[in-house]
Amino acid sequence: MKKSVLLGAVAVVGLTAAAASAATLDDVKARGKLNCGVSSGLTGFSQPDSNGVWQGFDVAVCRAIAAAVLGDPAAVEFIPLTTQVRFTALASGEIDILARNTTWTFSRDTDLKFDFIGVNYYDGQGFMVPKSLGVTSAKDLDGATVCIQTGTTTELNLSDFFRANNISYQPVPIETNAEAQQQYLAGACDVYTTDASGLAATRATFEAPGDHVLLPEIISKEPLGPVVRHGDNEWGDIAMWTLNALISAEEMGITSANVQELAAAPTNNPEVNRILGTEGELGAMIGLDNQWAVRAIAAGGNYGEIFERNIGENTPIGLARGLNAQWTEGGLLYSPPFR
């Protein structure tokens, strides 16, 4: 109460957000909006279109959660964050969930006191080189100049990789993808390294994409996932199971096209029924109604649809499913059962 009095004057003009005091779910419901931290611009994952509407793979996760909790995929306030301020924003309650291609690591989960609710994209750090260099393996890069996007785990991975292989390199750390891209194309570095998805997205926009190759080495594991604050397990559960519902929906064949139909009456598949709330009371167990997953799936489709629409092979980015295929198809996506 004290602080709200202290800042009462500014609250008058609506400039202060309410302190994140109670459970996040209650806050979100009362606010009527989900505050979602996203990257301030990452091709395919989060970007504003010409109407100022945020689009992308990470954005879709937030929309699904908003649909599940608030019944409206548009009820999201997207808050663009740079790498340097993202964790502070989450810790201070400025955002309810961070969906900003954040790598799940031990120290972030424990030391920084966050909870990763799952993995929405399995990535890894890769290398892109001009074809004319004739390099076929990252181990041939002894003495090369490498452009890195700074402020991430990327530069540590890079250092470890070159040290482990006992080869030398010259780092050119650059803060934004735009500058890194420009430098790479102008030949200021031989290699550009960042997450493989980012490399593919960058290469797709080159004037001559065919002149550049991605090297086979993936030098790190980058499980990217949405993050919530540690300690609010109810909220964490909602976020986690919304993501799992999207993944399971793909596995079960629930799409945005048929979800309403499937949810209208119980089907023969009991798990589909449980997800869609026509059987059991799963929604109540996480503090929502029974239609939550229907709304989440209807918002932007299941995981596969979101993938295909934002970064899939038919988009200019053209990423293959790879590790991000369902476990039944040789990928790593494996949602725990809805039971």
Binding site: Q84, F87, S107, E155, P173, E179
Partner: peptide, 24 residues
């Protein structure tokens, strides 16, 4: 300097180090 990758004190101590250690 960080905008163009020159590693001055803001980029090393105030940038990467703070990012890696969380000691903002």
């Amino acid at each position: 300097a960080i905008a163009i990758g020159y590693m001055d004190v803001r980029s090393t101590l105030g940038g990467i180090t703070v990012n890696q250690t969380g000691r903002e």
